[in-house]
Design a protein around this nucleic acid. Structure first.
Lengths: 212, 212
DNA sequence: ATGCATCACTGTAAAATTGCAGTTGTGCAA
DNA sequence: TTGCACAACTGCAATTTTACAGTGATGCAT
């Protein structure tokens, strides 16, 4: 699946998956509150200290939320699509790029949905993490908004405010699209990226039209 | 200022303000990383355990973020404005109601802005808390959206998705408006509520128009 | 004024999270 | 192959945060 990775990266990926599996397994078996970081780490054969090198919190491990770091070059590349496509399309594509493709392991996805049903407060964690991800691209979105014809001519402060709002709207659209996809599409995971992008764009468009 | 409070509530309010003052004072004096919850609690004359009865985290105390709990009745009352006003206006008014009026203590506001400048990561905390607040009114917003003429006729899932996006857009508008107000309006704190509402509405309207 | 229900406060212990320093394994070039 | 730079892993200590259980203060009806 991923043969183009060196030994170091393969080990790292394996450790992360082992931690995710351990977290999900133990939570389903013992319940969220009786599952400790120590137990997860032990089952995954790493020290508790290492656990936090992979995940920001226990919840993040259970949900499989990796921390993103974006290369400036990637962002700049994405930003050269404004002329051809619309602003909403560009921002959503940017967001989907940084959050990466959804997990292809169907069992895992089912298990996580079950955990989310049992512990709704995890939705808060998920939302917070997602929001944090989106803020990482704030500067890039500001640049995109500044180039858009509809927003041109505003003051610096106005542009910054507009960028902020465009970002939260598109981020929300992506979040809703991902959620719908996770809940409704148990079969193929191939066209996922395209489906997500298409759905998110139509959601954002629809709302902005109906609100104006 | 607030004579219509019993002894218990007055004491509680005083304790919260003492904790906020202690947190801000110590952070400005010793720096964020050298200020412990123990020190804050000691200066405020409560136990560290009590600290967490008032604030969810050290950061929340520094920023003065109180945890909100909304009465269902209040929400229902707000929701009866859809017919007369637009959807955006209603949702923003709802949000401003639940987050309450901004702090009127100017020194405190200045001090906190200074701390935010020195420790940008606190913005993440602030944003997360704000997002959490907004999600508390998800159901009420869903009801508002369902009543709105532009959104009527959609399926249940479509309505839920739309409500989600309307909420993040309005929430973002309020957040931007509050931020602008905190940074630019050192004088009167009286018309604050109206200014905030007006600014947030125009922000949300403008973006939805330009995006559509 | 009295009694009761409730809430605020506290101590203790356990779990979660972070910082620091040291060891080991990996990638890479000589 | 050897050696170096760096990343991953670990242990340890300190801090943050939560759960539980108990004590005292407050609000309120009588």
């Amino acid at each position: 699946m991923e043969p183009n990775l060196g030994l170091r990266d393969r080990k790292r990926l394996a450790t992360r998956l082992r931690l995710e599996d351990a977290a999900v397994t133990l939570v389903l078996r013992d319940g969220l509150e009786h599952t400790t970081v120590d137990a997860i780490s032990e089952l995954a054969d790493v020290s508790p200290r290492t656990f936090f090198k992979y995940f920001e919190s226990k919840d993040a491990a259970i949900l499989g939320l990796r921390q993103v770091e974006i290369a400036e070059s990637e962002l700049a590349e994405q930003c050269d699509r404004v002329a051809e496509h619309g602003l909403i399309e560009c921002v959503i594509h940017l967001l989907l790029t940084v959050i990466g493709p959804p997990s292809t392991r169907l069992t895992m996805r089912e298990d996580r949905l079950e955990i989310l049903r049992r512990h709704p407060h995890l939705l808060t964690t998920q939302l917070a993490q997602f929001t944090q991800m989106t803020t990482e691209v704030t500067d890039a979105v500001a640049a995109l908004v500044a180039r858009d014809a509809h927003f041109a001519g505003g003051s610096s402060a106005e542009l910054a405010a507009s960028a902020d709002l465009v970002l939260v709207l598109c981020g929300g659209a992506v979040r809703v699209a991902v959620k719908e996809w996770a809940e409704m599409n148990p079969t193929d995971a191939d066209g996922a990226a395209e489906q997500l992008e298409s759905r998110a764009i139509s959601l954002a468009r629809e709302v902005s039209v109906k609100l104006s």
